[in-house]
């Protein structure tokens, strides 16, 4: 089947999509956007997190056909000019090791910070709850917490 939807602001189309394919597969293998990651393909790790009409979801659990006509934002769409604040904070805080969980965490963290607009800031428990759907096997999460705290704090700079 043919599937057409908007990814990171651009309309994209894929042909000959097998009906059992996930949105994740279409993004990665058909649209040249492998940033969303294929760690578990069962909704248990969050590494494929994308926004679907603004809402963070696991792209592995969205059937490709369900994305028809919708708006998808992937990690590739987070920083339109250079790195976004949350991307920069992940680099600066040492929150990236192997990096396989990073794209999904960034989309989830981006959403989390949106729900705590400056000058509010998420507490550590809020961060933990907000990121509880994203597994990381390398960092022990401490530097990820640092990164989100840093990104939250930096929103105040120059404001």
């Amino acid at each position: 089947m043919r599937v057409t939807f908007t990814v990171n602001g651009r309309e994209q189309q894929a042909d000959d999509v097998w009906e059992g394919e996930s949105l994740l597969y279409v993004l990665r293998e058909r649209m040249g956007l492998p940033g969303s990651k294929n760690a578990c393909e069962q909704g248990e790790c969050g590494s494929c997190t994308v926004r679907l009409d603004g809402v963070p979801v696991c792209a592995c659990l969205v059937a490709a056909g369900q994305a028809e006509g919708r708006e998808v934002v992937t990690v590739e769409g987070l920083g339109q000019e250079g790195l976004s604040a949350v991307q920069q904070a992940f680099v600066d805080a040492g929150a990236v090791q192997c990096g396989f969980c990073t794209p999904g965490l960034l989309v989830a963290a981006d959403d989390l910070l949106e729900r705590f607009p400056w000058p509010t800031a998420p507490s550590d428990d809020d961060i933990r709850e907000g990121l509880s759907g994203n597994l990381c096997r390398c960092t022990g999460y401490e530097k990820i917490l640092d990164a989100v705290r840093l990104a939250a704090a930096r929103r105040g700079e120059g404001a």
């Binding site: 009906e19 059992g20 996930s22 393909e41 069962q42 909704g43 696991c58 592995c60 659990l61 969205v62 059937a63 056909g65 369900q66």
Partner: peptide, 26 residues
Amino acid sequence: PIAGGTDLMVEINFDHRRPERLLDLN
């Protein structure tokens, strides 16, 4: 029927199930 896909897509991804037709309720 497929809505959230949170059960069904796991079964499809892991080749546990091959329905003839999916009925998207989104």
